[in-house]
Simulated scan of single mutants.
Amino acid sequence: MSSRLWHYLHSLQIYGRVPANRVYCVSHQTMTTNITSCPLFSFGVLADVQYADIPNRLNFAKTSMRYYRNSIKLVHQAALTWNQDSRKPSFAVHLGDLIDGFNNREGKANSEKALRDILTEFDKFDGPVHHILGNHDFYNFTRKELWDSRLNTTQLTGKVNVEDTTTSHNPTNPPENECGCSNKLYYKFNPHPDFCFVVLDTYDISGCSHLQQCPHYEEALKILCAVNKNTGYELNSPTGLEGKERRYVLYNGGVGKEQLQWLRNVLEEATRKQQTVFILDHIPMFGATDQCLLWNYEEVLETLGEFDCVAAILSGHTHTYNYGEDTNGIRHIIFPGIVEATPGTNAFATIDVYSDYCDIRGYGQMPSFTLRYPVCNKTMGEECTDPTKETSVQATS
């Protein structure tokens, strides 16, 4: 390595642009410097595809355009990019809302066709894909139908070791009722012995994810209507609500008591094994607008704050990138929605995971940056900074 190159790399470490313990490989074939390192594993992430074979239209709030037919093209591009990557992802994650609710307006057959079409593009990725479920998935299918579909990745095998949450994951154990609410759509998997990935069901308690005759629906409606005094379809509107109360809308939901206890047990086990934890969900718990927050985000964050093993929470739902760090030092990364990525760009990432940090390589509207973990607890009220403005690496488009 030349003296000039050594000083350049050293300056990057001093100013925090790359981790000091990164392994550098310098190409001797050309005069250009090729700085690379070997991650423990990599994985791909994208969110809110919301595919539908319909013309572009504005979102519910009339604030941004949704490019429904374009979204399937962007999934195709992401799959090919991951396959061709020298640090090829061993798996991918979609953070919810795979097909848009408009599909169901033409009947179940149309929803099923849209699902087949978009899964065909995901199948072009040479690896398993974990699907977190969002509100639009429940607009198209019942919980039981989703359990019986390819969007149920609780039993995913192959390159990733998936562990079941309960015995209800046994296909021979049928759901107790037509709703299918006895089947648990939350689970964990271990792509590496030192890492645990936790998939949460943020519609465990929700009015849009259970049939009306289901007790879980009644419980969700009681929680919702205690705060939101709108009626019928207008329960999707936060009109009349202020501040954090605006999260009590029909398209959001919450984590139930049983799932919360399961999460605590998983984090206790991860702590014993000295594992770093990534949490994957649809509805954010922090850093989102008030009307896009998990109903019981405070309760879940309190549980997470009892442990030091959580590196980051990856969410979707808002369709807009955001980064936040809560008072326990846990990082929350909200991924931009594929459906609102303007034609000619994209909105996905490849995450290279190392022992004490990860590199997020963003494409299009998803920025690139380095994220260190675990993080120390922060003093209440201490200002947090966005790493994309501090330790960002060169963005890709």
Results as ranks from 00 to 15, higher is better:
V300K: 00
V300S: 06
T342E: 13
G305M: 04
V300A: 04
I330F: 01
D308R: 14
V339E: 14
N322P: 05
H319A: 01
L314V: 07
I333P: 07
E298N: 12
G337D: 09
F307I: 08
E298P: 03
A341N: 14
I338C: 13
A312L: 04
I334N: 10
T342Y: 06
S315E: 11
G324H: 09
L304S: 04
E299Y: 00
H332V: 11
A341V: 11
L304G: 00
H319Y: 07
T327Q: 15
H319T: 10
L301E: 06
L301W: 00
E299T: 08
I333F: 01
A311H: 05
D308K: 13
V339D: 12
L304I: 15
N296M: 13
I313V: 15
L314Y: 13
G337V: 13
G316K: 09
E340F: 05
Y323E: 01
T327I: 11
T318R: 05
H332R: 05
W295D: 02
F335E: 08
Y321Q: 09
F307S: 14
G324E: 03
S315W: 02
G324K: 09
L314E: 09
E299S: 14
A311W: 00
E299P: 13
E298S: 08
A311G: 08
V300N: 07
E306Q: 08
V300I: 04
Y323K: 01
A312E: 12
V310F: 00
H332I: 09
N296G: 06
C309F: 00
L304V: 03
T318Y: 07
I338E: 08
E325C: 14
G329T: 02
C309K: 06
E325H: 04
V310M: 04
E299K: 11
G305Q: 03
F335M: 15
T318M: 04
